[in-house]
Nucleic acid binder design. Structure first.
Length: 365
RNA sequence: CCAGGGGUGACGGAGUGGCCAAUCGUACUAGACUGUAAAUCUAGCGGGUUUUCCCUACGGAGGUUCGAAUCCUCCCCCCUGGA
């Protein structure tokens, strides 16, 4: 068994691993359109099942030919199950929200009550027509004790089995072949309890998936990444599985995880940070000079600082994005200061190119 | 020249005898953001290495008062009408 080399799309594309797919939760990468995304050499995106189910609805997207056609995107697409959103809303807002073996019931202020279940998640994901579907899981909250974590693991496994069955039925019904069907990803829970993570991994492998995801909140309560968890999952997973760090992460975390044998990542950081005026820049003069395994290989750049009001230089010379090749720092500073949307667009484009360069570097070294 | 209004910290703009180093907004500075309830949120923003304390401050100079950004007098400047 060999480690996978590509992420295959249902349209027959082969995207070389490792990959980073930024989050287009509601079928839009905030501030960008699909051709902007292409310009950043980003190979794929993540959309969210729950959000698209809420709006515009599974049936609508299905009739419009799936998310790929809907948003005119021809790269890879992963659909997240919606479990994470639903769970974080249900578990953190308390009240009448409840997680049972059947699914999750919750109510957001100003909206009607929602019951989200594994069945519904798979059904919606199949309507979205994505390249990877993720099982609906029960996420282990940060800091959960062993007993609590075990509960979430048991439920996650129960739901994983259910999702797998439904997925197989759907493939059979649609007469999908090994090549034309999407991946199905299991999600490992168990918090920081390593034995439990190992057990969860093994039991998911017994059910059988194309890959496994690093589930739960991506970082520990102190904000540090728990690499032991990543290692334990790796050690208990067959070589030919895809390993996917759900919601991960910072550039240096991704480097370490790739070196640990992980292949797929998604995270809101580059896009959200861009809108929040944090740009990522390599500590290098040119793209060739970037060393992603150096100690501090990147820094943050705050675009609208007074120092940059009259700065004619590009944000980074180790970048070939639209922003860095065309505009001076002074212009970006101006756009942020006047609050124009173009600031968010250019900054997002830059950060996405930063991440795509990162993955290119990791692929070749 | 006459009548009326006004001068507050980088800017806009509250406050009209003590609870005022002075509401609030902007700007600025720093920080946060990890399967997006987030183009958001938090903190600081006159000075001081004794900090529930001292100093300097609300156009300027005097004065009233136990106490003034707030009241009085004069001066300087700005705005709006009228000559």
């Amino acid at each position: 068994m060999q480690q996978p080399k590509y992420f295959k799309t249902i349209t027959g594309k082969q995207i070389p691993l490792p990959v980073f797919f930024p989050d287009a939760t509601r079928a839009v990468l905030k501030a960008l359109d699909s051709s902007d995304i292409e310009g950043t050499k980003t190979p794929g995106i993540l959309v969210n099942t729950y959000h698209l189910y809420s709006q515009p609805g599974a049936q609508t997207i299905k009739e419009l030919g799936g998310v790929r056609t809907f948003m005119s995107w021809n790269g890879g697409i992963i659909s997240d199950s919606g479990g994470f959103q639903v769970m974080s809303i249900a578990k953190t807002s308390g009240g009448k929200n409840a997680v049972t073996d059947k699914g999750v019931t919750f109510k957001e202020p100003g909206k009607e009550k929602v019951v989200f279940t594994p069945e519904l998640s798979i059904k919606v994901q199949s309507a979205l027509s994505t390249d990877m579907m993720v099982v609906f899981d029960d996420f282990t909250e940060p800091g959960a004790d062993l007993e609590r974590a075990r509960d979430t693991v048991e439920r996650t496994i129960r739901w994983a089995r259910l999702c797998k069955d439904l997925f197989e039925q759907w493939c059979e019904q649609k007469k999908l072949t090994e090549a034309s069907r999407p991946y199905l990803l299991g999600v490992v829970q168990g918090g920081d309890h390593l034995d439990l993570r190992a057990e969860c991994t093994q039991r998911l492998v017994d059910i059988g998936f194309d890959g496994l995801g690093y589930g739960g909140w991506p970082v520990m309560e102190d904000g540090k990444f728990n690499y032991d968890v990543a290692r334990v999952i790796r050690e208990n997973t067959p070589q030919d599985y895809l390993l996917y760090g759900l919601g991960i992460g910072k550039p240096d975390e991704i480097v370490k995880l790739v070196d640990t044998g992980w292949h797929v990542f998604d995270c809101v950081l580059p896009t959200r940070d861009a809108r929040h005026r944090r740009l990522y820049v390599y500590n290098a003069d040119s793209i060739d000079a970037i060393d992603v395994r150096a100690d501090k290989f990147y820094s943050y750049y705050v675009p609208d600082k007074q120092d940059y009001y009259r700065d004619e230089r590009p944000v980074s010379t180790a970048c070939d994005c639209l922003l860095c090749t065309r505009y001076p720092r002074s212009y970006l500073a101006h756009l942020f200061r006047i609050g124009d949307m173009t600031a968010g667009r250019l900054a997002t484009i830059h950060n996405l190119r930063f991440y795509s360069i990162l993955m290119e570097k990791l692929r070749f070294t």
